[in-house]
Amino acid sequence: MTDTASSEPAPIEIPEGVWSQPEVDMSAIEEIASVESVRSVRAFASLTYDYTPGLATTRFLRAIKEKRLVGERCSETGKVYIPPRGVSPVSGMPTTEQVDLGLDGTVVSFCVVNLDFTGNAQEIPYVSALILVDGSDIPIYGLVREIPYNEVQPGLRLKSVWVEDSEMTTSFENIKWWAPNGEPDVPASELADYV
């Protein structure tokens, strides 16, 4: 617990007459008048966890280290989910069939980010997109680069850009960003189910 004199927030201005509060009689405590009032308390809290990806996501993460994207199929609907969590959200049943997906994808939706929020190393503006990886049925988030932000649109075909082979780990961060692959745009009508 720290009394944060150095980063004390600005005093809150309260208009007259909003409420009334009786004076507290503190005459019994002689020294109280000379004590500086505490106006804020900052209590730091931190908890450490081990992440348990689970069976399906472990299969996905092992594959991504080998530069493969592996989804899992719902046995009832045939839909392929990435990254797989182990259960089909439609059937409620375990997904057991692994499906090798392509390394390219299609922009389903996107936004241009103009805010430089904390911890973000990207130069603004940049494009964050929902990308439908070839062979999958649910889009994932990705950063789109190597194209002016105002030329990105739904249907744009992309390739994944990966870190060096020597830097590959069991992490989604193996994909640095996505960039145009030169193929013609996919018509919007073909993306209707994924928006």
């Binding site: 348990t52 689970g54 069976l55 399906a56 996501t57 969590r85 182990g86 409620g92 049943m93 375990p94």
Partner: peptide, 10 residues
């Protein structure tokens, strides 16, 4: 340790 929460409860 091997399962995530949805795999635990499914």
């Amino acid at each position: 340790t091997t399962v995530n929460e949805v795999e635990l409860i499914q």
